[in-house]
C-alpha cells in the first residue's frame, strides 16, 4: 500500500516500511534487493549518502514519478453509461493506485484503463474490484456499456470535450509570462509522448505559438 504518499514521501523521504512495501512495484526489483534493504539502517537509506541508498530512492522515485505523471496526464472520457476510460503508460506495478485515484473521483463509474506498455485493460468497478483483461479498450468499453443503462446524469456531462479544453487552454496564456524552459520542465518530452498527450492540446498549442514566433522573427 502507498500510504499518505503526499504527506510523507515528499517531505521526509520514504520510511523503511514504505520502501519495503513499495519497492516490489518496481519492474527491476528482486528478493535480494529487498533483503539488503531490510538489513540496512533507516537513516542510511533515507539520506542518499551511499550509492545503495541513492539506488533505492531512485527506484522509488521512478515508481512514484510514473504514477504521478499518469495521474496528471491521462485524458479520460466518460460515456453516457457511466464508463470512464482512457489510455495509460505504466511500466511498474502501480495500476491499483491509478485505478484507485480515478475511483476516488468517480466512485459510481466503471473505470477502464488500457495500459499501452503491457497491452492490457485494467478495470475497477463501483465496488472497487480490480480486474485485468487482454482485450483492446474500445471493444471492452463497448461490451461493458451494453450491460449498463443509459443515465441522463452522465449524458449531461459526457461529450467530446477536446474542443472545450483547447479553447480554455489557449485562453489562459499570458504572453508576457511565457517561459518555455519552465514549460518543458513541467511537461517533459516523455510526458508529451503519453497516450493522452500525444498530439494533445498542449502539444498543438505550443507548436502554433512556435510557428508564430518564428514567422515574427523572419
Amino acid at each position: 500500500m502507498i500510504k499518505n504518499q503526499k504527506n510523507y514521501s515528499r517531505l521526509f523521504g520514504f520510511s523503511k516500511e514504505e520502501m519495503l512495501t513499495n519497492l516490489p512495484r518496481h519492474s527491476q526489483c528482486n528478493p535480494n534487493l529487498l533483503l539488503k534493504v531490510q538489513n540496512t539502517s533507516e537513516s542510511i537509506l533515507k539520506n542518499n549518502g551511499s550509492q545503495f541508498a541513492r539506488k533505492i530512492n531512485r527506484m522509488l522515485h521512478e515508481i512514484f514519478r510514473e504514477l504521478e505523471r499518469n495521474r496528471q496526464f491521462t485524458r479520460t472520457n466518460l460515456n453516457n453509461h457511466g464508463v470512464l476510460y482512457g489510455k495509460i503508460t505504466l511500466s511498474h506495478q502501480s495500476e491499483d493506485q491509478l485505478l484507485k485515484y480515478f475511483h476516488n473521483r468517480f466512485p459510481n463509474c466503471f473505470i477502464c484503463l488500457f495500459n499501452t506498455i503491457k497491452n492490457e485493460t485494467i478495470t475497477m468497478n463501483e465496488k472497487a474490484k480490480i480486474q485485468k483483461f487482454q482485450v483492446s479498450l474500445n471493444k471492452f468499453v463497448q461490451n461493458i456499456s451494453r450491460n449498463r443503462p443509459i443515465t441522463p446524469y452522465f449524458e449531461d456531462i459526457s461529450m467530446n470535450n477536446e474542443e472545450i479544453f483547447q479553447e480554455f487552454y489557449s485562453s489562459q496564456f499570458i504572453a508576457s509570462r511565457e517561459n518555455r524552459k519552465y514549460f518543458k520542465k513541467m511537461i517533459p518530452k516523455y510526458a508529451m509522448e503519453m497516450p493522452g498527450m500525444k498530439g494533445g492540446v498542449e502539444y498543438k498549442f505550443r507548436n502554433n505559438q512556435l510557428d508564430k514566433y518564428i514567422n515574427k522573427k523572419n
Binding site: 503526499k6 504521478e68 495521474r71 496528471q72 496526464f73 485515484y101 476516488n104 473521483r105 480554455f168 487552454y169 489562459q172 496564456f173 499570458i174 509570462r177 511565457e178 517561459n179 518555455r180 524552459k181 519552465y182 514549460f183 520542465k185 513541467m186 511537461i187 492540446v201 498542449e202 498549442f205 505550443r206 505559438q209
Partner: peptide, 15 residues
C-alpha cells in the same frame, strides 16, 4: 488527491 496539476501553460504555470 488534490494538488495534481494536469497541464501547464506555455509560461509554465499550471492550469
Amino acid at each position: 488527491s488534490a494538488g495534481v496539476c494536469h497541464s501547464y501553460a506555455p509560461d509554465g504555470r499550471c492550469i
